[in-house]
Design a protein around this nucleic acid. Structure first.
Lengths: 408, 408
DNA sequence: AGCTTAAGTTCGACAGCCAAACTAACCGGC
DNA sequence: GCCGGTTAGTTTGGCTGTCGAACTTAAGCT
């Protein structure tokens, strides 16, 4: 929010402090004005003034005074969970999902619709997304809530938060101005943005999952393999926003040819299809219109039964993941790895080889071992992250959504 | 400088705008107050007020009015190059270097001393550094200049800007509070900080070298191999500040054992010693106290003569670098690679294999090819970057160095 | 010389924070 | 049941630092 190339004027102070108060409430739960003053470093007078406006905008709600202690009881302020929500959308290869989250991040509505998006034209998919979002907005209106933004998770490279450059598993999705199209299809002025699903899944893990307050890389196994790096509470997006293509990091230059044209990519060892093939599970996941998780469940049950071919495949995949992640750790110095997507249910066979490779190859591992965690959000991570992004923006800079805060 | 967790008070405005004015002058050369007002977005009144104080602190200097145009001529303001300087120190495996840079980044003093630091105790090295710095400070005093900070480049992992956790090519340099030791040895209150040499070299390339205003990864070849990632004008340091250990990224899991305990590290293919060994150049660079660049020069002349063993070694090193950098590009999405350190004089043999591997392995390379540049600063990059860091801090936040600015 | 143009300064208005005094609400002891 | 002690929240006045506009300064041009 603070651009060092921009002049700092008076209104910046208000703007910054509104965000400070809101994020403090979000992080530490309901707090009285007095406690907020202590926690933020502002004076009681300032907090009171800011709080009054936040309440009148419907962002914050005053609870009943908490009695019991000596002195006048304070009235705790909490995020108003009844008013505005953020909308998250996920466009996956084989389903669509929409999710509404209130200011606290709690899920209000969550809908998933199985669908083959690989065989459909982008415009048809966008129309279906618009219909789903429209239905969700109507239901929200019935409970008196309204959305203030839409964020879309896409399994591909997204440029500038609006355009899909390339989505390897969604044929036809190249150089597509998704945000603009969806804006037209929805016939709305709502801010709409798109983002890589791996990055959003990582944020969900940060905000609502296993990795609260950590710096980590979230490895999401799907048909491809994505990586979302979170440092200091924010995703590292890279220059053009294409960061995180872990699936095409070279694990062994002498390895098999990959669809991307290179050799020995991680995806060829630990991608869902490669894993199934190596374990000898039949039924390519891409040709099924039925339960997309069937082959994965088969893999898990074979591993549980101790099938040697399966456990060997998982061990090889784990070592490949460990090698690629070790490179990330060496280059980016992240102390934690979160295994997500299909790796979550397979974690018990993956964690040991991943850790072994990290011990061997990650330089910083010696005096400060890299922690390997398992995702708790599973396939819901990306949508929840998307909805969370909308909410997070409001909390950090409410003035940009409610200009009234700045006036009168 | 702006911590979203801290309250914004009035003094922040001044602080920010002082930095804004200084960095604008630094970036666009001498500017009149009126032009500064346009460029920064502040009003003429505010700029005048800020400028007056910057001049009285010796940070900025008013030039003679530039005549020739219609209207009252403006008095250009430029950074005062006569007063304060930043000091940079580099502790390499086989030499020490000290550099003083004025506010514009221009080198005032630059001294290099060949020395085997691998065989010496850390305390002996620190004493020698202190002596060198002391001598430079005396010479500076003779010209009326004074240092306002020391920044030390170290070929290893530096934690929190003060402690060397591990330096693979400097035996004994583990868990060493370098900043504190140097502070004692120098008997000074000057702010002293330590930083990885690869990161500082990257910054030098950004500020004074080939990569002005770019986002890039700087690969610095020395005894080890370092990588410094610059995005948005800042080095990506990672969580604990250990980012950039490119030398120990695995190039081939079946490759040779490395001193770090892992196998197939980049350093084993493209580190200076490995390169000399593969080319068959005798004379280990670590045992010479004379010209540290002797073996390197020998390598270059053999390559120029077309010696096949040498060119084959360089080609293999280039491919290894390309493979490791491709991983970085996939994970971080940096569009430019700068070859620095010993790779600069060797670039004509390295660029082709590096580019070939990037074409093969970097996913984003297809529609937006990665540019490979050659450092213009060579082995001077790290020291100059170190000196530059001191200068940069002052320009960004002069109030922290001159509290007077904030008062009266 | 006098007009035009542009740079830089001065001055009053205004926004937004802080500090401190003040009011409000609750507890507990007598 | 009242009164002091304690903590919460509000009100008031002061201060800082920006902006905008009027003003002064210093040139070139006719």
């Amino acid at each position: 929010m603070t651009d060092p190339a921009l002049p700092a004027r008076h209104d910046f102070l208000r703007r910054h402090n509104f965000g400070l108060v809101l994020t403090t409430i979000a992080a530490r739960g309901p707090l009285s004005r007095a406690q907020l003053a202590v926690d933020t470093g502002l004076t009681k007078a300032t907090v009171s003034q800011l709080a009054e406006r936040l309440v009148s905008c419907g962002l914050v709600r005053e609870l009943e005074p908490a009695r019991g202690a000596v002195g006048r009881p304070g009235s705790p302020l909490e995020l108003d969970r009844k008013g505005i929500v953020g909308l998250g959308v996920e466009i996956a290869a084989d389903y669509l999902a929409v999710c509404a989250a209130d200011l606290s991040g709690a899920v209000v509505i969550h809908r998933v619709e199985g669908r083959d998006n690989r065989g459909a034209a982008p415009s048809a998919v966008i129309d279906r997304v618009a219909a789903l979002v429209h239905a969700v907005r109507e239901d929200l209106q019935a409970t008196g809530r309204s959305a203030l933004g839409v964020s879309v998770a896409v399994p591909g490279l997204v440029e500038g938060g609006h355009t899909v450059r390339l989505a390897p598993n969604l044929p036809g999705w190249t150089d597509l101005p998704l945000a603009a199209h969806l804006s037209v299809a929805l016939a709305t002025q709502l801010p709409i943005e798109a983002e890589n699903e791996a990055n959003l899944a990582a944020l969900a893990e940060l905000w609502y999952g296993i990795a609260t307050d950590l710096d980590f890389i979230h490895v999401s196994g799907e048909i491809g393999v994505g990586g979302g790096v979170v440092v200091d509470g924010a995703v590292f997006r890279g220059v053009r926003g294409f960061a995180g293509e872990l699936g095409h990091v070279t694990v062994d230059p002498a390895g098999p040819l990959c669809g991307c044209g290179s050799t020995g990519c991680l995806e060829q060892y630990a991608g869902q299809d490669a894993l199934l093939r190596a374990a000898g599970v039949t039924g390519d996941s891409s040709t099924r219109d039925g339960d997309p998780n069937g082959p994965l469940r088969e893999l898990v049950s074979r591993a549980e039964a101790g099938d040697e071919r399966t456990t060997a495949a998982l061990d090889a995949a784990g070592r490949a993941i460990g090698l690629a992640v070790a490179a990330v750790v060496n280059i980016l110095d992240v102390p934690t790895v979160v295994l997500g997507g299909i790796y979550a249910p397979l974690a018990q066979w993956l964690v040991a080889p991943v850790e072994a490779e990290l011990r061997l190859r990650a330089l910083a591992n010696r005096w400060d071992p890299v922690t390997v965690l398992v995702s708790t959000l599973g396939t819901q991570a990306a949508v929840r992250g998307a909805a969370g992004v909308c909410v997070d923006r409001v909390l950090r800079d409410p003035v940009s959504y409610f200009p009234v805060l700045q006036l009168g």
